[in-house]
Design a binder for these strands. Sequence first.
DNA 1: CGAGGGACCTGGTTGC
DNA 2: TGCAACCAGGTCCCTC
Length: 269
Amino acid sequence: MPELPEVETTCRGIAPHVSGQRIERVLLRETRLRWPVSPQVAGLAGSHITGVSRRAKYLLMALDHGSLIWHLGMSGSMRVLPTGSPAANHEHIELELSNGQSLKFRDPRRFGALLYCDEDPLQHRLLQPLGPEPLADEFNTDYLYGRCRGRSAAIKTFIMNSHIVVGVGNIYASEALYLAGIRPTRAAGKISKARIARLVEAIRATLTAAIAKGGTTLQDFTQVDGKPGYFRQALQVYANKGACHTCGKPVRHLVQGQRSSYFCPLCQT
DNA sequence: CGAGGGACCTGGTTGC
DNA sequence: TGCAACCAGGTCCCTC
């Protein structure tokens, strides 16, 4: 599920409820996630959450000692509800807070993660090699065009590579390429600088618009208050089994890197 | 080094 | 109606 807009939505949603709170109790119902939940998590009662931030699709929770690195995987979501409210199915982790609220992590497919980190989480081996944030100044035409030089990989899988740029998942990769008029199968190294410039802007615009709508809900994703994200109605090509919204030609589907791609054969070249 | 595929999971939908 | 096959927001890691 969660691509950058969904993680950003989650981050903004939980921050006011968890920042500054003490962790009163930790409930671990299932620790077999993508990686086993770090053993230190079980002993976090008494710690304070000093802040919440996002890097790529990781949600970072600073504690008075160390920090937590969360990942929502494919099906993860977080909610804040009064402590004592019944646990939903697949609600694997719960942090009871000093304000009487609980942070609840639900993840049916268990591709998510919760890791404890002693030092700067940005230096963690999972975060250290990541490319720039797509909404930051470092992600610009010169950067992306430079990275594309000599690369034969399809542009769609290329922009989904977190070492190139973070946060662009399967939905928004298709959407951004549609907006930029670039076919997802085109080799990254064979796209002109002018078109790369369009792509950079398209990625920015797509992600920004999705954040404004609280992300995209296909199935599992919910905002912290339990509502879905509302960007689904704004999707142009992803999961569009009908006509291109621009030219009316049938949207085409193909599989790249075991993931579904959608594009318009007329508008995208 | 880069490209491509398997692996990790559960659950909803599709098709016979 | 029942059941198997397939598909779904991610991404690390291994092989070629």
